[in-house]
């Protein structure tokens, strides 16, 4: 499988570390209730089909990329950079 990196182009999956579901949002530290934390830490939608997920190019530029990938065909449907450097990178 080739994972696209906005800096480095398409790179082999072995250069990346998979960081999982990109849709889970970390709860607000001050306000969130325990259920929200449980959901954040443990619960996953785990869809069959398009899945928004995070991959880190840690065998390369170390950028964390948010990718939508079909979990049945492994086809990559979209890609964008995350983090403070995301401006100007990705689609």
């Amino acid at each position: 499988m080739l994972i696209p990196c906005p800096h480095c182009g398409d790179r082999d999956v072995s250069e990346y570390s998979y960081l999982g579901d990109a849709t889970i949002k970390r709860p607000n530290q001050e306000k969130a209730n325990p259920h929200k934390w449980e959901t954040f830490v443990y619960n996953r939608q785990n869809p069959r089909g398009p899945h928004k997920e995070l991959w880190q190019h840690n065998g390369g530029c170390r950028l964390i990329v948010e990718i939508t990938r079909d979990t049945i065909s492994h086809e990559i449907l979209s890609m964008k950079a995350t983090g403070p450097h995301k401006t100007g990178l990705g689609k």
């Binding site: 960081l19 995070l54 995350t82």
Partner: peptide
């Protein structure tokens, strides 16, 4: 890797 995830995704506002 753990810290980079927080900086990129959860706390992108931190410099």
């Amino acid at each position: 890797e753990h810290m980079e995830l927080y900086l990129s995704v959860h706390w992108p506002d931190l410099k």
